[in-house]
Structure formats: structure tokens, C-alpha cells
């Protein structure tokens, strides 16, 4: 990921990623690996899964998500993430803006 043609799309990706995490947690709670795995499966969204962990930790520090540790049937305990009220607000604001943003960009790209 050097400077050049790839970096603008990677910046765009980076900006959107935290909202994708918040969106995954809408109405449900998930543990770290579930979130990372789900985002990793989405085409072209995440290039390196490892960088999602610092992102999760930042969302927690900003209190957009809260976490609880829970035992798992197999393996080590898991950290479950859920949206806080301010996380929900942030997500719904973004969803409103994203619709317009996406439509505008699409219109311009398609030259209509």
C-alpha cells in the first residue's frame, strides 16, 4: 500500500470501514473474530484483517461500542461487541449521508 493510485481507494476504504463495523453490530452482538471474518469476506473491503483490531480498539475508546468477555464452549474467552447509544447515532447519521454520497458519485461516474 504505497503512495500512488492505490492509496486514494485505500483511504476511502479506511474512512468507511468503521461504519461497516458499526453496521455489523446493528441489533446484535458479535465477537472480534466474527466481525473481522465477516468484513474479510466482503469483496475488496479489507486488505489486511490485522488492521481491524486497532480499529475495534479505537471504537471502544471512543465509546461507540462496548464489550463484554464471555466464555466460549471451545478455546479462550471471547470479547463480544455491541453498539452503544452514541454508536447507534453515529451509524444512522452516516447511513443518511452515505445514500446521497453514493448516488452523487454514481451519477457522476456514469456520466448521466
Amino acid at each position: 500500500m504505497g503512495p500512488g493510485e492505490g492509496s486514494s481507494i485505500s483511504q476511502l476504504r479506511r474512512g468507511v470501514l468503521e461504519y461497516c463495523v458499526l453496521a455489523l453490530l446493528r441489533g446484535t452482538e458479535r465477537y472480534s473474530y466474527e466481525i473481522v471474518h465477516a468484513l474479510g469476506q466482503a469483496q475488496g473491503l479489507v486488505t489486511t484483517e490485522g488492521t481491524l483490531y486497532p480499529l475495534l480498539s479505537r471504537l471502544r475508546r471512543e465509546e461507540l461500542v462496548s464489550t463484554t468477555w464471555r466464555e466460549s464452549e471451545a478455546g479462550p474467552p471471547r470479547r463480544y461487541y455491541r453498539l452503544t447509544p452514541s454508536g447507534e447515532t453515529r451509524l444512522s447519521t452516516f447511513m443518511g449521508e452515505w445514500g446521497h454520497f453514493r448516488d452523487s458519485v454514481d451519477t457522476l461516474l456514469e456520466g448521466r
Binding site: 472480534s32 473474530y33 484483517e49 490485522g50 483490531y53 480498539s57 479462550p76 471471547r78
Partner: peptide
Amino acid sequence: LIAEIRAHLAE
């Protein structure tokens, strides 16, 4: 960070 990555790799 290390605990999270360890848990990730365990899975």
C-alpha cells in the same frame, strides 16, 4: 492487541 491477535489465530 496481542491477546486479540492470539484469539484470532486460535480460530
